[in-house]
Design a protein around this nucleic acid. Structure first.
Lengths: 344, 344
DNA sequence: GTGAAAGCGCTAACAC
DNA sequence: GTGTTAGCGCTTTCAC
C-alpha cells in the first residue's frame, strides 16, 4: 500500500526545478510572461512527476468550481433523462461538471438540495421544481448567495427567474386541431390532477382549438387523473367511454395516459383510429411501439437542457447578465401524426 | 445589486462575539469541548449574520468533498436511470452528492471523465464502462491518486476492482428453462454483437438450459444484431422465422430486441404465445404495455446502484477495506412470466 | 521573466 | 473550554 506516497504538488515541481511555485503555477497556466523555455521545463517536470492539479485548492482561491447543480424531481423518466443529457452535453463544452440531485417530488428534499447548492459548492443551479412545490422562498437562498439559477420544464408562475419551458399551449392546440381535421367531433381530454402551469396550458390549448373550430365545450369530456399511470387511465377511460359512447377522440396529457386510453378503447371493441382517435404528449419511445403507433406531441428534451445550461452559463460568466429582467424561453413542440389518429 | 455584500465567514462571527475562529468552528461542529452556552451564542450569531459555511475551504482542509463521481455510458436508458436513482438514494443517506458524467459510449470521453475525477474533485468513483472500452489503463489514474472506485453493471474481466453486476447467467438460464417447461422445443436466441461479458453470460445461460434439458444446440438459431433497435430486431427475426419456420420460441437479450421479435412474429401471422413464445431481458416499462405483455428477466437497477454506492463508501471510509481482494457482488435477476410465453 | 509573500476560509494540533 | 498558530495547495499582487 502506497499510503505514504503523497500527491505531488506545484511546490514539488518548483523544488525539483529550483524555481518558485509562482513560476510553476504561471507556467502551467500558460501565462505569457513566462518564457517558452521555462514553460517547457515546468510541463516536462510536471509530467515526469505525474503532477495532478488540486482543484479544491484552485477553486478555493478562485471561488469557482466549474460545476453546476441540477435539481430534478425524477430520474427514471424518459423526458427528464433527455433533458439531463442535453445539460450534460452542453456543460461539457464549457468544461463544467453537473451535480445531480433528485428531489423525488418531495418539497423537503428540494429545499435541502437548494440549500446545499446555495452553500457555494456549485457555480450555478438548474432546477425543475417538484410537484409539491408551491412555496418558492427557498430559492431566495440562491439569490442571497449570488448563485445564478435557471428553472426548466416546470413553470411556477410567481417565481421570477429565467425559465426554459416547452410550448404546451400550441402543442395541445395543434394536437386537437389535428383531431378535428381528421373528422373527429367529440373530443375528450384526459389530464393530470396537477394544477401545474403546464397542465393548464395544455388544457387551454385543447379548449382553444375546440373554440376555433366552433365546437362547444363539454365539461363531461374532461377527466382528471389522481395518479398518473396506465392502469388508472385505462380504468377512467373505460368509465368515460361507457358513459359517453359518442366520444370519438381523446387528447391525453401524457403518452402514459394515452396508452391507458388506447387499452380501454380496445377493450371496449373500438377500433383505433377508425372509431376513436387518440393523441398523447411527450413522444416517449413507447409511443412508437404500441399498436397502433401513438400520435403524440414531441417535447425537445435535449434542447431544453442545452438551452437552460446556456442561459445559466451566460449568467455565470456575466453576473449582471439578466439585470433582473428574466427571459422565458419557450421551445417548440412538434406534433407527430402516427396511426392512432390518422384516418387519411 | 449587492455585489459588494461579501459572504459572511467564521471570522465575522468570531469578531462579533469577541472569540476566536477556532471556537466558532468548533461550536458550529458541535464539538463537546465547547460549552453549551458558547454553542448557543455562536449559532445564534451565525443565524443573525446568515452565515453559510464555505465547503470549498473546509474540503481543502479536510481533503474530502463529500461527492462521488459517476460515469455512465448513457442516461436516456431506463435501466441506467434506475441505477442512478439507487446511487442517488443511497448517497443521500451519507450526505454525499453525485457528479454524473455521461461518456456516451465513447472511450475518449470516458478517459477524460476518469482523469477529471482522478484529479481529486470527488472522494470516490462509480463507473459503468462504455461499450468501446477494452483498454482499462485509464483507471490506473484513480489508483495512483488513491481514489477508490467500484465498477457496476458492465463486468470487464481483466479489470481488477470491486464490481456490482446482475446474474446474467442464471437469469438467462431460468428464462430458457421456463420456455422449455412451457413446451417450446426450438428456441432461438437473439443477442447483441457486443462481446461484453454480460452478453456472453446470457448466451451461456441459454445454452446451459438447453443442455440440461437435452436439447441439442443449433448454431442457426443464434442471431447477433449489429445495432440494437426494434427495427433491426424485427428485420432479422422475420428473416430467421422465414428460414426456420420450426422455431417456436425466442429468448432475446433485451426487451427492445424481444419487442422487435414480437412484431416480426405477428407480421408473419404467428400467435403469441400459442405459436411462438418470447422472453426478453431487463423489464422495461414498455414490456408491460406491449400486447401481449412481454415476459422478461427483471434486473434490480436500484439495488445495483445502492450496492455499488455502499461498497464505495466502505472503501472511502476505510481506505484499506478491500486489501486488494476485490469483491464481486452478483445481484439476483428475477423471471417475470407474462403473456408472451405462458400457455398454461 | 521570475520570486516572495500574502492570503482564499476553514480545521486541527498544541497550548493553557 | 477556549485561544494561538500553522497550514491545506493554489493564485495573485507586488516587487525587482
Amino acid at each position: 500500500m502506497d499510503k505514504n506516497k503523497k500527491r505531488v504538488k506545484q511546490s514539488d515541481i518548483a523544488e525539483k526545478l529550483g524555481v518558485s511555485v509562482a513560476t510553476v503555477s504561471r507556467a502551467l497556466k500558460n501565462r505569457m510572461e513566462i518564457s517558452d523555455e521555462m514553460k517547457e521545463r515546468v510541463k516536462l517536470a510536471a509530467r515526469e512527476l505525474s503532477y495532478q492539479p488540486n482543484f479544491m485548492a484552485a477553486n478555493l482561491r478562485s471561488q469557482k468550481n466549474f460545476s453546476i447543480g441540477v435539481i430534478i424531481p425524477r430520474i427514471v423518466h424518459e423526458y427528464m433523462a433527455s433533458i439531463i443529457k442535453g445539460i450534460s452535453q452542453e456543460a461539457s463544452t464549457y468544461n463544467y461538471q453537473i451535480m445531480v440531485n433528485v428531489s423525488d417530488h418531495s418539497y423537503a428534499k428540494e429545499v435541502k438540495a437548494v440549500e446545499l447548492f446555495a452553500s457555494g459548492i456549485v457555480d450555478g443551479v438548474l432546477v425543475c421544481a417538484s410537484n409539491e412545490t408551491t412555496d418558492v422562498s427557498h430559492f431566495e437562498n440562491l439569490r442571497n448567495n449570488n448563485i445564478p439559477f435557471v428553472m426548466f420544464d416546470k413553470d411556477i408562475q410567481k417565481m421570477e427567474a429565467p425559465k426554459v419551458v416547452v410550448d404546451d399551449f400550441s402543442g395541445a392546440y395543434r394536437a386537437v386541431e389535428h383531431l378535428i381535421q381528421q373528422g373527429y367531433k367529440n373530443i375528450a381530454h384526459m389530464q393530470d390532477n396537477m394544477i401545474s402551469h403546464g397542465s393548464q396550458k395544455r388544457m387551454k390549448g385543447y379548449y382553444s382549438a375546440l373554440k376555433k373550430y366552433g365546437i362547444s365545450k363539454n365539461q363531461d369530456y374532461l377527466v382528471s387523473l389522481q395518479t398518473i399511470s396506465i392502469e388508472e387511465s385505462k380504468r377512467l377511460t373505460e368509465e368515460l367511454l361507457r358513459t359517453y359512447p359518442e366520444i370519438d377522440a381523446i387528447f391525453a396529457i401524457t403518452d402514459e395516459i394515452a396508452i391507458g386510453a388506447m387499452q380501454a378503447a380496445q377493450k371496449l371493441g373500438k377500433r383505433i383510429p377508425e372509431d376513436i382517435g387518440i393523441v398523447g404528449f411527450s413522444n416517449w419511445q413507447i409511443s412508437q411501439v404500441v399498436s397502433p403507433t401513438l400520435s403524440t406531441v414531441a417535447q425537445p428534451g435535449i434542447e431544453v437542457g442545452r438551452t437552460a445550461l446556456k442561459l445559466l452559463m451566460q449568467n455565470i460568466e456575466n453576473p449582471r447578465y439578466f439585470q433582473d429582467n428574466f427571459p422565458i424561453k419557450i421551445l417548440k413542440t412538434k406534433l407527430l401524426v402516427r396511426e392512432s389518429s390518422f384516418r387519411g
